[in-house]
Design a protein around this nucleic acid. Sequence first.
DNA 1: TATGAATGAGTGTTCATTCAT
DNA 2: GATGAATGAACACTCATTCAT
Lengths: 190, 190, 190, 190
Amino acid sequence: MQGEKLDKKTQIVKTALRLFSEQGLQQTSMAQLSKESGVAVGTMYLHFKSKDELVEGLFLHIQEAFGKAIDLSDSEMKASYKDRFFILGRKVHHYYVNNPAHFFVVNTLNYSPYISKEITELGRTYYQQSVDLMAEGLENGSFQPINIVLLIRFIYNAVIALVQVQLKDNVEVTEHMIDQNIERIWKAIT
Amino acid sequence: MQGEKLDKKTQIVKTALRLFSEQGLQQTSMAQLSKESGVAVGTMYLHFKSKDELVEGLFLHIQEAFGKAIDLSDSEMKASYKDRFFILGRKVHHYYVNNPAHFFVVNTLNYSPYISKEITELGRTYYQQSVDLMAEGLENGSFQPINIVLLIRFIYNAVIALVQVQLKDNVEVTEHMIDQNIERIWKAIT
Amino acid sequence: MQGEKLDKKTQIVKTALRLFSEQGLQQTSMAQLSKESGVAVGTMYLHFKSKDELVEGLFLHIQEAFGKAIDLSDSEMKASYKDRFFILGRKVHHYYVNNPAHFFVVNTLNYSPYISKEITELGRTYYQQSVDLMAEGLENGSFQPINIVLLIRFIYNAVIALVQVQLKDNVEVTEHMIDQNIERIWKAIT
Amino acid sequence: MQGEKLDKKTQIVKTALRLFSEQGLQQTSMAQLSKESGVAVGTMYLHFKSKDELVEGLFLHIQEAFGKAIDLSDSEMKASYKDRFFILGRKVHHYYVNNPAHFFVVNTLNYSPYISKEITELGRTYYQQSVDLMAEGLENGSFQPINIVLLIRFIYNAVIALVQVQLKDNVEVTEHMIDQNIERIWKAIT
DNA sequence: TATGAATGAGTGTTCATTCAT
DNA sequence: GATGAATGAACACTCATTCAT
């Protein structure tokens, strides 16, 4: 039962992710989602009370997967601060490049009225470790003094710039370019 | 006649800008736009053949205003390269902070299927001077070698980070912080 | 003044005839009619109080032209009854074949709610001579006794059959076939 | 399920038939059709993809019912050729008189751009037997030589003349008058 | 729990008509 | 008389949501 329910829910989320990233949120109807996911419309409404809630669920699903993917392992956490910063940077880049649908959906949602402040906050908890890592850099004097919110946005946006170049401008991006990009960011804030 | 016509079109554009930034594109119906702008539905369709064309028109309107606002004057163009870079950075920041609706609409459209490649390209022509300025920095050796597309995205995203902090996180941003932000960018790419 | 007004009205009627027969009544908007006739929308409403009235006017215009075209001249009226019957039959056929737009518009209107009984009656007055000719055939014993209304519809429909074959089925129709068709009708009712 | 579905579709078709014959196709909106049939707008679109398709469906529905109604039974087919011709003539007349809505809708559609050539052809298959009967009359020498298309149109139009007299001119029509009318047609073409 | 037929408010768009010039 | 910009009711159609099974 529990297994089957998760299956249906997973089917919905996976299909929604694909359709939303391919066509946009509004362009994807619940009927199409039902047809392509193989889950009846009524069943979708057993798992998500409304389309808005489905979008929220999708957002949190992405943030959770993102959080897990960029989590540093125990052994990685033993590296120097700069090394940990670079490891994180690479993980973020690779995550989005390997999950372009997540990238497009999350960025669309960021500027849409679909996601409330509360849900945004809730999503943030999934990558708390990364936020803490940034705070640590401030505290241990690695970074120049700066507003922590700005620091995080600055780094995120700068990493994202290269992801955009790879996914939207279809420029070939090498591992070396990724490292160079993180190097630039490091230079900027230290 | 000419004056009134411009008035109507301006009313539509101004209201659309407000509603689109407040509620999103799809959430704003032509009926609501008509009611709030005080222009009859039919009249709106005399100025824009469809909602899509209205969105395109709005996008180009914003890009044009943006381009004009960040254009360096003849006297400003006589400054040193670094100074010109900073002037541009400040102008971009101030433009978006003074026109938050433009900021939200343009960023929403960036990730939406509303705007075709052609229109995006057309919009780019309005701030060609800034693109050229970035290219100049590469040619005159101010910047480290880097893919020009990445360079522009990197700088834009980094400037935008502070705009987001001011407009979305409601953090008070001083002129000093703006200069510091540009300084960070300059450090990163030189 | 009078001359110009007639000009405008003629322009409207001629263009309406063309557009209505090409596209149908409902598919032709007053705006398109205005553009293609070169008469401003407002001006059209000076000549016809509404689209319905324009359609009525068009109908009467066609019936008048039709009536004039099938009118037997004084010399033709001196022929024997059967000859007059054949002359009339040929005239009707030729009129519709030479004015296919009239044919299609009149037949469309016949089964549409556009034309009221009164207007239909009014239109009938334009070809009273032909109606009288049919009544004469009844009175002089040329025809078998028959309801006059049925007689007229029977003859009209039978003539129209060959027009349809020529205009809708694109069958080549010779003068001989026209005469044969009238001969069939004559045989039927005498 | 099946029963209810058929019910809804039947409700739509019946109401459409009534409204289309009373008011015309274009004058009947999907909203009115919904209200008067007691079927929600959305439901109508489950059964017919568009208004055009509804009209097509209605046309074919009529042609099918017409075809069935005028089909000669096995025993009727054993009659002499002339008798079969008369039986068919009476059936056509009675069908339209008993289904005036069918009469008005089919004749309206005949001169409207709603029905494509393909659909017209498809509709024709429903009364192929009658077409064959006409061809038989040509082959067995009952009729004078004549273009088959013209023959069919001539007979149809002539039968229809009496239907029009009954339905549009509200003239009382007796069985004798129907036979007389067919007699006229028989005389014309033999 | 799972289904999908049914719903009707809401959408973008059209177009006959008006009226200030 | 002549114009055409402006109007808004009406249109065909969509789709998130419900509910009887």
